[in-house]
């Protein structure tokens, strides 16, 4: 149990997927202008990443590995993730319309979110067991959501500030992300 707790802490804070591993930056800068969209994206990522983590682990260890098809991993993973996202979208639309209304527009974006694919690859690279892979997928997603929501708060404040013209928008966003990353960097000292 203690191991899982440590894994969780390291995935959420020490190796934060956005600010320390530099994955998923396009949605990070794209949807962080408003708190609502940031919340929607964070929830959609948590939802999809846990499913994707589980399914890609199964694909890799039960299908690709026994048959020696590991060189097809990239192709297999992206197809599995794309199919999963499509399936989740259809399922939500049909059976939980309220949730679909909240997450809907973010789901197609997730296929090309490198955080999802990245975490699935990290799970394989670190040779996690199934439960470890589940924990790491979930907590990486939580870390993603945490950073995204905090950053959306920062960006809403930046809107009120007078920023020099060339620095506006993405540029000041990146500088702000650098400052946040510096704060998360402090967690490295704990590890």
């Amino acid at each position: 149990m203690g191991d899982y707790f440590l894994l969780a802490i390291s995935c959420i804070f020490v190796n934060n997927i956005l600010l320390m591993q530099y994955l998923g930056n396009c949605p990070f800068l794209g949807v962080s202008k408003k708190m609502e969209t940031a919340l929607g994206m964070a929830m959609a990522v948590v939802f999809v990443l846990v499913l994707a983590g589980a399914i890609t682990w199964i694909t890799n260890n039960l299908i690709l590995k026994p048959f020696g098809f590991e060189y097809l991993r990239t192709l297999a993973f992206i197809l599995v993730i794309a199919a999963l996202v499509q399936f989740v979208e259809m399922f939500l639309k049909k059976s939980i319309p309220a949730l679909y209304a909240g997450l809907g527009i973010f789901l197609p974006l997730i296929t090309t979110n490198c955080a999802v694919m990245g975490v699935c690859l990290i799970n394989i690279k670190e040779e996690y067991t199934f439960v470890q892979a589940l924990v790491s997928s979930f907590t990486y997603a939580i870390g993603f959501g945490l950073a995204l929501i905090l950053f959306a708060g920062v960006r809403e404040r930046i809107l009120l500030a007078r920023v020099p013209k060339p620095l506006q928008d993405t540029s000041i966003g990146l500088v702000g992300a650098g400052m946040m990353s510096l704060a998360f960097f402090a967690f490295k000292g704990m590890a």
Binding site: L19, T170, S171, G173
Partner: peptide
């Protein structure tokens, strides 16, 4: 390190602008 990466890219974007 990571913070420097964000900062450099932000400033480069500013110079490009």
């Amino acid at each position: 390190e990571a913070p420097g990466a964000f900062l450099c890219l932000g400033l480069m974007l500013c110079i490009m602008n």
